[in-house]
Computed example of a mutant assay.
Amino acid sequence: MVILGIDIGGSGVKGAPVDPVRGELLDERYRVPTPQPSDVSAVVEAVAEVASRFPGYDRVGLTFPGVVVDGVIRTAANVDRSWLAADARALFAQRLGRPVAVLNDADAAGVAEVAFGAGREQAGLAVMLTFGTGIGSALFLDGVLMPNTEFGHLELGGVDAEVRASDRAREQEDLSWERWAQRVQQYLRHLEMLLSPQLFIIGGGVSKKADRYFPLIDIRTPMVPAALLNNAGIIGAAVTAAQAAGHTGPLTVDAAHAGAYPG
């Protein structure tokens, strides 16, 4: 069975076939820019363009930058609002002609990291955070995903945390690593107070520069950079689709909740 993973982001849509047992890409990933405006029809066609580069796939796992409940989009902070209440699993399954599973993008990245990366075999409570356009989050208890957390929208300094501590905030405000690390530290300490986790896994593009800011952050909880970097969403989406097909490998997400399209 060939599983295709596709990661829908605020700036790009990228995908590749995945080995869901080893957590590895089977081909070089293909990327297209996220359409602007990122309305339903335009994004569906962008996904179809990515999928067309990899013929012969049996199932598709898709990430989406918002809350996904039973395949239906509930929030759309960084894409067009036409996605609100859209049945993404039905739309993509109809266009691609394959069974589809859909889940939140940070959840997908976390699934991959817990199955194959920095969170593998981590007991207790682990929190995956992706710092990018916003702050995505994924919560795991003994390796099992608690889906659709939105910890990037916790209040910090009177605004959503991601307004102050995302990587976009660092770039837009031209913050030094030291000043940005102070904001990230404040945010992580707030999460520590709320959750008392055993581990923070830090993902997103900025995780590649962990050496620039990790030493500047003083918190109690161990903190590690994501191991799978920008492939995590693709891999986690494919793992979710594999579970929907009854796969028994190292999977950590409820396929029914992810909105696996039957077939």
Rank of each mutant, 00 (worst) to 15 (best):
I73C: 06
L125D: 07
A48L: 10
F92G: 01
F116K: 09
L129P: 01
A85E: 15
R81T: 13
D160L: 10
D107L: 07
G124P: 01
A112Q: 06
D167I: 02
A165N: 08
F64S: 01
V44P: 10
A48C: 09
G152K: 03
G152C: 05
A77S: 15
D107W: 01
G61F: 06
V43R: 06
D107K: 07
D142P: 14
A51R: 04
G157V: 10
N148K: 08
L96W: 03
L139W: 02
G97M: 08
L156E: 05
T133G: 02
R164S: 11
D87Y: 05
L125G: 10
L145K: 04
R89S: 15
W83T: 11
T133H: 05
A106T: 02
G61I: 04
A93M: 06
L145C: 03
D142G: 14
G119F: 04
F54C: 09
L154T: 13
A88R: 08
L125E: 08
A77Y: 13
R164A: 12
A138R: 03
G117L: 05
A161E: 00
E155M: 15
V127K: 11
A126P: 09
G152L: 04
D167N: 14
L96C: 05
F116T: 12
D160W: 13
V44M: 12
I73P: 02
D160T: 10
L154Y: 14
E113R: 02
R59Q: 10
A108N: 01
V68L: 03
A42W: 02
A93Q: 09
V79K: 11
A101N: 03
G97T: 02
V163R: 14
V72D: 10
W83Y: 05
R53W: 06
G66C: 05
L129A: 00
R89D: 08
V72C: 11
V100C: 02
L84Y: 07
L91C: 04
V114I: 15
F64I: 02
F140H: 12
A112F: 10
A85P: 00
V44G: 09
L84H: 08
M146D: 11
P55T: 11
T63N: 03
D142S: 14
L129D: 00
G56F: 11
A77L: 14
V40Y: 06
V127P: 06
R74I: 08
A126Q: 12
L139Q: 07
V44S: 11
